[in-house]
Design a protein around this nucleic acid. Structure first.
Lengths: 111, 111
DNA sequence: GTAATTGTCAACCGATTAGTTGAATGATGT
DNA sequence: ACATCATTCAACTAATCGGTTGACAATTAC
């Protein structure tokens, strides 16, 4: 499977733990441990979720001594939101941009 | 895992074949076979994807004789779009509604 | 009635997911 | 130097995913 940007973004968002982490990060920079804590999850488990978010470009990591500080990097969500916005247009009966949408998605398959 | 609405919606959208099917359906009602065709995929395979979209509430099915006609039912995307829209506020430096967002997501975990 | 078409279901396969544990790495504190 | 803290890595597990094939049910065409 070729894994385009929307795949990775939507999949990252499909997990409630990861959405929770994003929500937590919205309130400020956090360490992996601090991110793990509200989910009663091992460090290693949290570390994996953070890696998924990182690979999706949704967070940025900054090492400060032995702790990794994670901050949110929400801009990539823009593409996902733009995609959904086309559908909003659709279900509100405005079909104008849909062919462009289909083409965009097709082209991004290998991007 | 408790599977709330956002989980199911984002997961359904995370697959390019399913997004392709939605795009195809945007152009009109289609049978399972017609949906399968551009992906060179078996009926059974397409049938599974359609079921995922159906379970997410993104499409509706109408049986006409031996064929199942699928039409798009995009309204459930509204919730996903609303969720993303909160983040748009974030990445444009407006943090006002984010606490509400966190609470909403928390409450929907069992909804 | 028989054959072809449309689709589902069940069983299976290989890959991935979300989680764990335990060992290893690296920075800090004493 | 040594213990501790924060994190990753490797190996493992159970569940799920995306896909296939083959059997079946229902509808349509001849």
């Amino acid at each position: 499977m070729v894994e385009n940007r929307l795949d990775v973004t939507f999949r990252a968002l499909a997990d409630p733990t990861r959405r929770g982490m994003l929500a937590s990060l919205a309130l400020g920079e956090k360490s992996i441990g601090a991110l793990a804590e509200p989910f009663a999850m091992s460090f290693a488990g949290a570390s994996k979720h953070v890696k998924v978010l990182e690979d999706a470009g949704l967070i940025a990591r900054r090492k400060k001594g032995r702790t990794h500080l994670i901050k949110i990097e929400a801009k990539p969500l823009e593409e996902a939101e733009r995609w959904l916005r086309q559908w909003e247009k659709f279900w509100t009966r405005r079909l104008d941009r849909l062919e462009a949408l289909i083409e965009q998605d097709k082209e991004r398959k290998n991007g």
